[in-house]
Amino acid sequence: AQEYRALYDYTAQNPDELDLSAGDILEVILEGEDGWWTVERNGQRGFVPGSYLEKL
């Protein structure tokens, strides 16, 4: 798994998404072809927009 940093804040719109704060460090589990990536942070897993992340 790769570590990424959130570039922007994101507020989850659905229960299966995660909130992001700019600067958060996340582990990317799966890069979805639809642009939604499965990530894990502090034991929580959910979808976030891949375009909001940069690889560390």
Rank of each mutant, 00 (worst) to 15 (best):
A1M: 15
Q2R: 11
Q2Y: 10
E3T: 11
E3M: 14
Y4T: 05
Y4P: 00
A6C: 11
A6F: 00
A6Y: 01
L7C: 09
L7R: 11
L7W: 03
Y8I: 08
D9R: 06
D9F: 03
D9Q: 07
Y10A: 00
Y10P: 00
T11V: 11
A12H: 05
Q13G: 10
Q13A: 13
N14K: 14
N14D: 02
N14V: 05
P15G: 11
D16M: 13
D16I: 05
E17Y: 04
E17A: 03
E17V: 02
E17Q: 15
L18G: 01
L18P: 01
D19G: 08
L20K: 01
L20S: 01
L20G: 00
L20A: 02
S21A: 14
S21T: 15
S21C: 15
S21M: 14
S21I: 14
A22F: 06
G23Q: 04
D24Y: 02
D24P: 00
D24R: 00
I25Q: 05
I25N: 12
E27M: 09
E27N: 09
I29V: 13
L30C: 15
E31P: 09
G32I: 03
E33V: 10
E33L: 09
E33I: 07
E33S: 13
D34A: 08
W36H: 09
W36C: 07
W36Q: 08
W36P: 05
W37L: 11
W37Y: 10
T38V: 10
V39Q: 01
V39K: 00
E40G: 05
E40L: 11
R41G: 06
N42Y: 08
G43K: 11
G43Q: 08
Q44K: 14
Q44R: 12
Q44C: 07
Q44A: 15
R45I: 11
R45S: 09
G46N: 01
G46T: 00
F47D: 12
F47A: 13
V48A: 08
P49L: 07
P49K: 08
G50A: 14
S51M: 11
Y52L: 09
E54F: 03
E54N: 04
K55R: 09
K55M: 11
K55W: 05
K55Q: 11
K55H: 04
K55I: 08
L56M: 10
